[in-house]
Amino acid sequence: MLAKQRFVLDTTAFTDTQLRDDYGEGDLSKTVDAMLDLIAKSRIKLNISCHMPPITYKEFTDYMSRYECPDETLVKAETWIVKKTPNRYDTKIPSEIFYEYVQDMRERMNKGMRISENGIWEAAVESMVMMSRGTQKSEIEAKVLGKAITDFRKRYRAALRKGTLDSAPDLDVLLLAKELGAGVVAADEGIKVWAERLGLRFLSAKSFPQMMEEYLQHYD
């Protein structure tokens, strides 16, 4: 029996755009089906098991349902993905990691506040200039405020969410991987950053199926 390898999968391990191009011709259902076939073969032949926390698994299946993945694919997912809730009480995380996370979030919030202030000033100045020229209120709202809100959302989201943990499913993936001593598979930059800080093995969504194919090629 080969030594057991475990991996904890984020939803992005299946939904990454590059992965869809490589394994599903751009189609999510085909991609997920191909991935699950690889996971099944690797489980039987190579003793590789793939896990998801229940909250992440629900996020994954909800996503599949929105794209109308066939029932057969959902059955495969239920069969080959191991669902397990991480032990949030006993899993030990170094206090330095918690300190770094708090510092990171504080810096992001400060950056978000500066983005908010700049956005308000820019919109206010442009609105006043247009009013002084006799521009109608409806036109100001359409040209200035609508654009300001769109730009603000984009910049604010990038400042606060890109490269960090921003959801319970993300955190559960890392906690379960830490508990199991497993690798982490994702296409999420925040999960990658914090997986590496926790000393966990990380594989990108693109490289994970390539690894399994390489293993299976040599097994056969």
Rank of each mutant, 00 (worst) to 15 (best):
P209N: 11
R157P: 03
E117L: 15
D90E: 14
P53Y: 08
A195V: 09
T12S: 15
F152Y: 15
N110A: 15
R106Y: 10
L9Q: 09
L180G: 05
G181R: 03
R161I: 13
D220C: 05
S127N: 03
T91W: 03
G26M: 02
I93P: 02
T135F: 00
G24P: 01
I149Y: 02
A123C: 04
E122V: 12
M211P: 00
I44G: 07
A40E: 15
R88T: 13
N118H: 09
I55S: 07
Y57L: 09
A195K: 06
E78D: 14
E122N: 12
K92W: 12
A123Q: 02
D172Q: 08
N47Y: 05
E126S: 08
Q103A: 12
S42F: 05
L46M: 11
I93N: 01
C50N: 14
P53D: 09
K4I: 10
R201D: 15
A40Q: 15
K147C: 00
S167T: 06
N118A: 13
L28Q: 05
V8W: 08
S204W: 11
A186Q: 03
K4T: 09
H218V: 06
D172E: 15
L216D: 09
Y57W: 10
D170W: 06
E141C: 00
D37T: 12
I191A: 01
L174Y: 09
A182P: 08
D71I: 12
D220E: 14
D220W: 04
C69M: 14
L175Y: 09
K162N: 08
